[in-house]
């Protein structure tokens, strides 16, 4: 999975935090920044991301693309 990273479209995020819990390397953090729907969104730290796809699997709102 070398080189693969998670990219988040935070306009779809509802701030549920399931990906934050699922990420095995704590590369995703919950922020207090709001998206246009008014949800507090997450942020991905690309340096820490190992591209495992756990966030894609758990996210109920299809925020992630792992490529």
């Amino acid at each position: 999975m070398a080189g693969r990273k998670a990219y988040a479209d935070v306009s779809l995020c509802k701030g549920c935090g399931l990906c934050v819990e699922a990420c095995p390397v704590q590369a995703i953090v919950q922020t207090t920044q709001l998206n246009e729907k008014g949800y507090e969104v997450i942020q991905v730290d690309a340096d820490k991301c190992i591209g495992c796809g756990s966030c894609y699997t758990t996210c109920p709102d299809y925020v992630y693309e792992v490529r």
Binding site: L12, G15, L18, Y39, T58, C59, P60, D61, Y62
Partner: peptide, 12 residues
């Protein structure tokens, strides 16, 4: 985009 509440299993 999903119409479900945040964290709902239906989206998955």
């Amino acid at each position: 985009p999903c119409g479900f509440c945040g964290g709902c299993g239906h989206g998955v």
